[in-house]
Design a protein around this nucleic acid. Structure first.
Lengths: 127, 127
DNA sequence: GCGGATAACGAAAACGGTTGTCAAAATCCG
DNA sequence: CGGATTTTGACAACCGTTTTCGTTATCCGC
């Protein structure tokens, strides 16, 4: 009876990038769903166990999830001052991730890259 | 009066690798110190703020600290089946992240890289 | 359809690491 | 010594996550 699990999977797939369980819960509730937080967590755990989503931790310990898409993607260069994000591409990095994974006998390789910095404006503002 | 901060710094320096705040607290208590958990956290936070220790998060969200002002920045290749993690290095990626950030006028650049895959064992087990 | 076993659900409580509160103790300065 | 300031640590609050447990929905043999 994985209707709820499907719902969560879909919500995650539709949103790009990483979402926290609480984010997804808020999203679903605001869409009118009566899903419970517990179920969101359970679904994410199940999806994670079966390898359908990737999980990692933010700096403040929150778990964030991403639908596991092997499809090509881009990354973001995020300003830690104002949050401005620039889309960046790194074919070199894609190749590197694949090759390093393959070297260790891993298959079905995906990766995430986040680059953080202080943008020119914020650097200037800060003095 | 930063004897306590010194104590924590020293405890961290003496132990190799990553330790959690709770670990350090337990260590210090077992050595007879009457330090409080709050103080350990405060000291670690201060040390982290001043860049004297590195912080990261374990898979279950616990913060771990390492006295290390230097090198050994590495990433992880994580199996999405069994969770096994392999430490990987990618000087190329480090350089790429720096250069792409600089190109966009960003300074003070950091980055995170996570590579996910299915390890040989799990691929075999799964069929 | 009907009824009971089974699985999924969700509200609320429990949990564990972390952070905040606040009064007591230590330190500093005059 | 005495008062201002800082540091400390017991304790409570917090927050994301997990567990509990009673309710509800689904499945399956009749």
């Amino acid at each position: 009876m994985s209707t709820r699990r499907e719902t969560v999977r879909q919500a995650l797939t539709e949103s790009s990038g990483f979402r926290s369980a609480q984010d997804l819960y808020a999203d679903l509730r605001s869409e009118g769903s009566k899903i419970g937080l517990t179920t969101v967590y359970r679904a994410l755990q199940a999806l994670s166990d079966s390898g359908e989503v990737d999980v990692l931790r933010t700096d403040d310990g929150e778990a964030v999830y991403r639908a596991c898409i092997t499809d090509s993607h881009h990354h973001h260069l995020v300003c830690r001052g104002c949050g401005k994000a620039v889309e960046i591409e790194g074919p070199m990095v894609e190749r590197w991730a694949d090759s390093v994974g393959t070297q260790h006998g891993f298959t079905d390789i995906t990766h995430t890259v986040e680059v953080f910095g202080t943008c020119a404006d914020c650097a200037a503002a800060k003095g």
